[in-house]
Amino acid sequence: MNIFRLFGDLSHLAAIIILLLKIWKSRSCAGISGKSQILFAIVFTTRYLDLLTSFISLYNTSMKMIYIGCSYATVYLIYAKFRATYDGNHDSFRVEFLIVPVGGLAVLINHDFSLLEILWTFSIYLESVAILPQLFMISKTGEAETITTHYLFCQGLYRALYLINWIWRFYFEGFFDMIAIVAGVVQTILYCDFFYLYVTKVLKGKKLSLPA
């Protein structure tokens, strides 16, 4: 464990908690892409199946349980409890255009042709594009609630910190995982446009609105 990975995990945890609390307290999921949240639930489910097969540490196991629990709770709130506030018209990204290519790539490019490994690889590739429905929805509505931008910032920051963690691990431990690194770079690049808007607008107290 290093400081970058720790703060990456904490940033990721913060994002998940911010979103869950925002929906729960405002009793509304307006502006939130349910499709992205379903993709994240799939990402955690396919990645953390090793919860059933291996124990790494209390930290590792508890964080995985929290991630899975919160992501399913968020999906439940969006599609069941606060379904009336779900903005289905603007959440129109065709996720099958993500899942099919990512699934195919995971079967073609992986470290080991075993079920758990292919599911892990699928989860890594899927996570790199899972935010696209959310970013697409914001581009369609032309704006985002400030709390949603904080959620997105933490979500984007987490993988950016992981990139530094991988540099650290390569330099000090000689470990690297090309699949995780390439997907992490793609994932972080997808946030760059948002990061620019977040720093130039939200941090100056303005609302995040895109030129419609």
Partner: peptide
């Protein structure tokens, strides 16, 4: 350095 997976990572 091998291409070991980071299965200890989240």
């Amino acid at each position: 350095p091998g291409k070991l997976n980071h299965k200890d990572e989240l």
